[in-house]
């Protein structure tokens, strides 16, 4: 229902990590705060206020987006994946595993956003070159690692995902 009446809150239906949620939200609520504060999914972080750092990256309908620059109301009817929903409990997605194997994180704050961007990259390009990986990370800032181990982590994951694809 579109309704011409101005409302204090707006109903939304969002599927997050496979679970359907119905909520009434203020129009000004940013998607990142809906995830963090309404759903308790605090793995998605906020690192800036100008849409640059990428710590808040999630997937909306399979695409990596910055959830600090989306209103929760815009996510009505949308499927969302956050870092918490990347792999079943107790397991790691190959990209998460790669970050651990290659020491792709230090303080861990940018990490969920980095991983979500990397997963999106590998879903669209299974064999990215180093340059393509660096380019794909242009919307994610890390202040700890110097990115080198992050690039190696993504290369490790790409390799792992390719070989598991072949073997299955």
């Amino acid at each position: 229902m579109s309704g011409k009446m101005e409302r204090v809150t707006v109903p939304i239906n969002v599927t997050v990590n496979g679970v359907k949620h119905e909520a009434e939200v203020e129009p000004r609520l940013l998607l990142v705060y809906f995830l963090r504060e309404h759903l308790g999914l605090t793995g998605t972080h906020v690192g800036c206020d100008t849409s640059q750092c990428g710590a808040c990256t999630i997937h909306m309908n399979g695409r990596a987006v910055k959830s600090c620059t989306v209103l929760a109301v815009q996510a009505d009817g949308v499927k969302i994946t956050t870092i918490e929903g990347l792999a079943p409990e107790g397991t790691l997605h190959p990209v998460q595993e790669g970050f651990r194997e290659k020491h792709g994180l230090q303080c861990g704050y940018c990490t969920p956003g980095m991983i979500m961007t990397a997963v999106h990259l590998l879903e669209t390009n299974s064999s990215p070159t180093e340059e393509e990986i660096r380019h794909a990370l242009e919307g994610n800032l890390c202040r700890c690692t110097g990115y080198i181990h992050i690039v190696e982590a993504i290369q490790w994951a790409a390799q792992r995902m390719r070989s598991s694809h072949v073997s299955s």
Binding site: T42, G43, V46, E84, G108, Y109, I115
Partner: peptide, 21 residues
Amino acid sequence: IRRVEDPVLVTGKGCYVDDIH
């Protein structure tokens, strides 16, 4: 050695100040 800290942090289960409610 791979870090002990990482399984928590790569799955979004870290607890930073803003995660405290």
